[in-house]
Structure formats: C-alpha cells, structure tokens
Design a protein around this nucleic acid. Structure first.
Lengths: 188, 188
DNA sequence: GGGTGCATGTAATGGGTTACATGATTCT
DNA sequence: AGAATCATGTAACCCATTACATGCACCC
C-alpha cells in the first residue's frame, strides 16, 4: 500500500525539475515562481529533501567551493521524474479555503459598519498591491524567461491570479458602497 | 501575556452569537452559513467548546428531552460576546493560499497538454457547480432570513464567492483555448 | 568588530483531518 | 432486525510555521 506523497514533496519535485538546487535556493526562488499560490518554509523543505533522498527521488551532490559555505545540491533522479509525472497526470484536489476577512465580515453585524469598512479597505489596498506584483512579475518573466518552453504555463498561473485579483477589487468597491448604504440606514 | 485565540474559537463565537447550539448543530449549519469560506471538523469543534467553556466564553446547558439523546447546548456569555467583538474589530490577516491546480499547471510542461486540459476542465465543471450553489444559497437565505438584520453581511460574503467564481470560470475558458494553441504549436 | 547574506538544519508548538468508538432513537 | 440519523467525543497522524541554533564569508 503506497502512501500518497505530500504536496510539499510534489512541489519540490517540480522545482527541481527546472534545475538542480539546494534547499536554500528552493526557498529563494519560490517568490519568483510558485509563490503566488504556494508556500513552503525551511521547516518543511529540509526534512522533505532528506526523505526524498532516502527514497531515491533525488540525489545529493555536496559542493565545497573555496571561500563558500558547503552546499548540498539536489537533482531529480529518473524515479523522481517519474513520480513527478505521475502526480501531474493525477487529478488535482481542491484545497479547503479559509478566509479570515470573510469570517469577520459574515459576523459584521455584531459591531459597527466601520469595522467592516476598515477590513475591506485594507483588503482592497493589499489586493491592488498584489495585482501590481502580478503585472510586474509577468513583465519580468516575459523578458528573462522569454525562450523557456514552460513560459506559457507560468503565464497561465499568473493569469488566474490577475483574474481573481481584479474580481476581488471590484467586489471590495461594491461592498464599500453597500456598507455606506447600511450605515445610512442605521443612522435613520 | 494573552495568547491569541485560534480562528476556530472565533468562528464558534460568531456562530453561537446567532443562536445557542450544540457541537453537532454547529457542524450542521456550517454548510449553510460560513461553509463557502470556512470549514471546521468535529475534531476541532468539540475540544474548542470544552476550552471555551473552561475560559468562561460560553456556558453549557445539558438537555435531556425524553426520547432524545443528551444534548449539550452552548450559548455566549458576556465575556464571550466581548471577545467576539474584540476579534471583529481587530485587523484581518490574509491566510496563505495553496492551490494544487495551479501547482500542477505550473509544471504542466513536464507532461502533455492533455493533462493540463483535464485538470482545467474538471476545475471549470466544479466552479460552475459552485457558482450555482452560491446562487441557490442566495435565493434561499433571501427568502428564509429576509428579516434578519445580518442578511446584508451574509450576502456580501456570498457575493465575493460569486465574483471569484465568475473570474475563475472565465480564466478556465481562456486557458483551455491557450492550451489548444500550445498543442497546435507542438504538433507542428 | 559588526552587520548582512549564504547555508543547513532541528524543536516546539499549533492547526486540522480522519478514523475510530460509543450509544440512543427512529424509521422501514 | 437493520439502516439512518442524532449526538458526543478521542486518538492518531500529518501538515506547517516559527523560533532557535550554528557557522562561515564578505564588506565596511
């Protein structure tokens, strides 16, 4: 009975399929790659690399360059590549969502409308910033990874971020108006 | 030094602010209330209720109706209501997102375009179903909770769901076309 | 000498799901 | 008699973040 890999393992297999890296490298490239929809911390990465090595999914090369700290560089083995492909072919599961903003808004009637206003204004500002980051990232990878055959896939993932960001921004604006209307009603 | 409540506690405080309920009840109403953006399992609910009772945030009434199993009904105390309000006033934190679909799509270049197509078609179908559920829920609560002063807040949360669902559906359609284009390029 | 960046890792803690265990009642 | 539903709860396990611990190298 084979246990399913954790998605941390799958994410690392994917990242190492692009190029060999150390645990530190992996952490560093996440913000510029899968960071918009996935996160991993050192506390997950290093133990996962150890387990994956033991399982033969990746192999480790220790580099001792003069004047630099020891580096453990991991690369995919054939078994690792197979495992990655098998996971990529299998259906994706929806991860459960937990949205603290909505949780607060749902119970917003327990406090004044101003509290909800503040939350939504903060969310709006954050989302506008996020959207700008998406645009900037897109320009950057279009330039720097122009010839990479994987570029179209990266752009697709960014694009969902953009769609949802824009939808969220529109909702924030609508909702702020709706809150104004509610505040008006309460005043009368 | 006061430790921050877990969001499970906050969610339960919120739900119990609507009306007194048992742990079982709470689990049952989640799909019709905060279920679109929040989930809690029995394994979280019962221990949380115990801790909250010990802390004086809620009070427990045991009911032994003839012909029915024992029921533990919990209601907010004043301390609990204060705690809820304090949490509602404090800024909302963004929860980290983890999207398995995007993770698979990001590495889609490692396998054929058909794999990505399948994932996105499944996501599209699921999202269309979700959108229908939002519409149905909206109609239902507009009818059944027409006079509830909290109704506007509930509709706001549903509305973000609708916005994002529609955005996701549009993205799925775009992305399917883009995948067709890619497949075409690869064939040549 | 001190800060920053490279680099690796572990431990403590908490969040969260699933499966298990139990038992009454009600409906067929 | 047996299935479904009401109802409560625990234990095992996994997932994940944060903080901690260590140490070298490089630059100011």
């Amino acid at each position: 009975m084979e246990r399913k890999d954790s998605n941390t393992v799958n994410a690392l297999l994917g990242l190492l399929s692009i190029c060999p890296m150390s645990g530190y490298d992996i952490r560093q490239v996440i913000p510029f790659s899968i960071g918009h929809f996935w996160s991993e911390s050192y506390g997950q990465i290093y133990p996962a690399l150890k387990r994956m090595t033991a399982e033969g999914l990746i192999s480790k090369k220790t580099k001792r360059d003069k004047g630099k700290p020891v580096r453990h560089e991991y690369s995919l083995t054939e078994a690792g590549r197979d495992r990655l492909r098998a996971w990529l072919e299998s259906p994706a599961q929806r991860s459960p969502i937990r949205n603290e903003l909505l949780l607060k808004l749902f119970f917003g009637g327990q406090v004044g409308t101003e509290a909800s206003r503040r939350h939504i204004e903060a969310a709006l500002a954050a989302e506008e910033k996020t959207l700008q980051v998406y645009e900037a990232t897109e320009q950057q990878i279009r330039r720097e990874q122009a010839n990479d055959p994987q570029l179209p896939y990266w752009l697709m993932t960014l694009n969902l971020g953009r769609h949802c960001s824009r939808a969220t921004i529109a909702w924030c604006r609508e909702t702020l108006m709706e809150l104004d209307r509610l505040a008006e009603l309460n005043r009368q």
